[in-house]
Amino acid sequence: MDTKQIYEKYPANDPSILIPILQEIQETEGYLSEEEMQKVAGFTRLPVSRVYGVATFYNQFRLQPLGEYVIRVCRGTACHVKGSLDVLTTLENELGIKAGETTKDLKFSLETVACIGACSIAPVISINDEYHGHLTVKKIQKLLASFRKKTKED
């Protein structure tokens, strides 16, 4: 999809629109490319260094494309005391990537998130915004297997 329409919605030369416009571009493109950040810099009349500075400051922005399945591991306190670190380590080991990375085949991205507020089913992860709670190492392995199967079928 083209990002042209996004720019049309915002006033030019207004630095305060920087974050919303980056958010919208990321929603459309999946990530923020150098090219788009350059464009945004020109559009807002901000130095591109500042755009880059903002894009790297906030957790939400990513400068690389995301995988097909985005796994978010809740690292909230409730999940932590119920073993979410093990959940994370298991996922990292199973997928062979660290939190914040995407598998080479672009199938899975792994992220951590500070409390998604589903403390009642801690420890919890979300896969493409669907929640999976009360996780154990075994459950994760099963879950991943089912998603791997899914991607193969696609």
Binding site: G76, T77, A78, V81, K82, G117, C119, S120, A122
Partner: peptide, 10 residues
């Protein structure tokens, strides 16, 4: 927000 090792999380 009551959570963790408690019966009635909520």
């Amino acid at each position: 927000a009551l959570s963790g090792k408690v019966r009635n999380v909520g």
